[in-house]
Design a protein around this nucleic acid. Structure first.
Lengths: 180, 180
DNA sequence: ATTTTGGTTCAATATATTTTGAACTTGTCG
DNA sequence: CGACAAGTTCAAAATATATTGAACCAAAAT
């Protein structure tokens, strides 16, 4: 593929090869993964699936990305958990095939549910604990610190309340427009 | 501080020492920093400032957190850049003092502006480049891939449009409530 | 003008995270 | 059943990221 004689460019097109477009798309998803705090291999996997018109099987994920079996296995698992990738079955083929989720709402939803929400829940628990300690300390607590502990609670609640709005705003039904 | 004889608990309070509350708050911010992809030392610095009723000077940040000069310097700089920390001046004192930002809207705003927005802008540039390559390739591009490239653009625009809404929703004026 | 103080920089080191790949499981086929 | 194929697991190696601290700079104090 994409050699002088067997190019993805069938015909005499002098332009850039299709595979360069794909390379750039994979790079884009590697960057995105990094921005989201996911390993780059996961971005690579998603990028490859995203570029393919048909679902891809495990071994092709490996050969096309060049990553190891282990990474592919773990990456595909996580991507499925956050709703970024679906498994599909092909008749009379034992292997599993994979395809990317393309609806932003679902992508975002999975990511928020699996990655952000647990952090917010942990935070809430931690704040409960802090409030309990603060209660036991009663008057020894500086009033300013006491107030600030209250604001921790309020931040956490605001963050938690934000998530459903974000999903709603990312829905296809939402036309673009300024807030307010 | 907080030894058997020189406890933060002045008086015969049998409760947990104030410093344990502070320890837990610092731990909370270390977790938060981690969740946001910032080094834990930055969370530690913010936590210490958050716990102090008065602004703290550079050297006290170091002694109270136990981190190195270098980390403190870098951490304070970044925290100021993202609006999480303000520098304040004390009369007839050469040193700078620092205090935490407490308004969620400002904290979120700085973080989004300095951390999230640049990624979205990079993404937009990258997508421009991909569209150009795709254009040069004309008909060689699989129609499905062409469609998907269009959706990249739409995702990026949606993400970009989301930011102002998030800020708006995090504003103090917003009462909590379900979306829709 | 020299010293001291407050703070920054950045190369070296320490720590954390990701990736690899060989050994293993599980299910399928002949 | 035995052999193979698809995929998982996880300890070790590779990579990336954060932290340290000594050398440095600039402004104030002496």
């Amino acid at each position: 593929m994409d050699t002088l004689f067997q190019s993805d460019n069938h015909g005499d097109n002098p332009g850039i090869s299709v595979s360069e477009v794909e390379t750039e798309i994979v790079l884009l998803f590697i960057n995105l993964a990094h921005a989201l705090g996911l390993p780059k291999s996961h971005g690579e996997i998603f990028g490859i699936l995203f570029c393919s018109p048909e679902p891809i099987c495990f071994d092709d994920v490996i050969t096309r990305t060049g990553i190891s079996k282990g990474s592919a296995s773990q990456g595909l698992r996580l991507l499925q958990r956050i709703n970024a990738v679906r498994q599909v079955h092909v008749a009379r083929d034992r292997r599993s095939f994979f395809e990317p989720e393309l609806r932003m709402r679902h992508l975002l939803g999975g990511f928020l549910r699996e990655t952000v929400e647990p952090h917010i829940q942990n935070g809430a628990n931690h704040i409960n604990h802090i409030e309990k300690l603060a209660g036991q300390n009663g008057d020894d607590l500086h009033p300013v610190l006491h107030e600030r502990i209250l604001s921790l609670r309020s931040w956490n609640q605001k963050a938690s309340g934000l998530l459903p709005w974000i999903l709603k705003l990312a829905s296809p039904s939402n036309r673009p427009g300024p807030p307010g």
